[in-house]
Design a protein around this nucleic acid. Sequence first.
DNA 1: TTCCCAGAAAATTTCAAAATTTCTAAAAAT
DNA 2: ATTTTTAGAAATTTTGAAATTTTCTGGGAA
Lengths: 229, 229
Amino acid sequence: MLKASFSTPQIYDDLHMQLVTAQIPQGQKLRSERLREDYDCSANTIREVLFRLASEGLVVFEEQRGFRARPADPERLHYLTKFRITLEQEGATASIRHGGLEWESQLAAAHQKLGHIESRLTETSLGGPTLRLWSLAELEFHDTLLSACDSPFLRSSYRRTYDQFRQQKIMQPDYGYHSENAVEHTAIVKTALERDVAGCCFAIYEHMKRNLRDGGASGELRPKSAPAG
Amino acid sequence: MLKASFSTPQIYDDLHMQLVTAQIPQGQKLRSERLREDYDCSANTIREVLFRLASEGLVVFEEQRGFRARPADPERLHYLTKFRITLEQEGATASIRHGGLEWESQLAAAHQKLGHIESRLTETSLGGPTLRLWSLAELEFHDTLLSACDSPFLRSSYRRTYDQFRQQKIMQPDYGYHSENAVEHTAIVKTALERDVAGCCFAIYEHMKRNLRDGGASGELRPKSAPAG
DNA sequence: TTCCCAGAAAATTTCAAAATTTCTAAAAAT
DNA sequence: ATTTTTAGAAATTTTGAAATTTTCTGGGAA
């Protein structure tokens, strides 16, 4: 890493990105001294940033033992998925009920952008900067789906949960990308634009269930109504 | 305030409590130097605690301008209430479906404890330490309702939202206490123990709707099913 | 060979003072 | 009388170093 003075938000953005895109492996120790040199700042600035990342769940802090990237934890992935499903089903339901024409077009645009990247992912090899683009585009897609729900706290809670989810997934062999993703995203958009609340909730569940502890076998979180069709 | 050395978690707990129980008015400036003297610690320790409180939404931070208790904001109260309703309805639904005998008894116990304090609140004057007890008991009651939902992220998200809600409410003339509270809490417990999901969601909505922007007139968040009876 | 302990090295946390910025109030100019 | 400027005061942020704690290393005993 080149030596140059970074400001606090720059350091935060850089570390956040590295934690969410597998550039910092899960469980790795984050030594203040080393980071202080890398970013050419004082130890306190590093401490400040790491505490913020800890409050967002991406970093674990232990008194007198410093910071480390949060280790892999299958149970955590299960519960993050569970909460993501809850928030996205609730948010999408509200968006479908209240969203207007602008929401529809933004959703279609986000889906098109994501689909474009996903089609490239199946062609070329995974990893590298393309994966980072995909991660950003997928978050933007899901966030746009919720953007008309008129609940800012639900949206910010979803974003925090998504980042933690991505950090857990990112070290898996496939980096969290599955070829079925594209089809599943299309199902979500289709049902949302058709204003099919039950169908959309079902599509969301189907999209995420593979990350549940039992692969979604119990069907516990499946929406109350049956899927459309 | 007496001069004595406080550790970081003690300072955090104390400031958190003061922010949530109206001992620090909304919008009040929190000067590091003053707090440093009060708690007999270094400026950095204070800064650390204030950043943490800021990440939880109770404190606002402005670059080069320091910290202040979050100001009153009716819109914020509206959206906090909206999110509380969402989380509590989802969590209570899951608890009702999965909770066992232990959950039932814990809920009954928390309700009894809360009811005991609420009966005293109508007799004696509000404010002082009794109000703090009530605030704690009410949080414990709502948290117990969600305790069997098997979603730790939903529960921690609810607690953060509750604290921010309480901070917004606390400066109102009645300190956020209404005489109808006791009846509403009873309705929530009754429907929960009867495993009446729709009824419980309705009771939750009825309990909180007075904090919505329009007093709940739009009925936007009312659960899909009609209340029981 | 394994376990335990002491000393050394490294990292984290706390502290205090310097430097930068913002706020306040008084004086000058329009 | 109102606005602008400017000097002083106050508060925040940063920096660097000291003190505490943990971790690592090597020697000695079981």
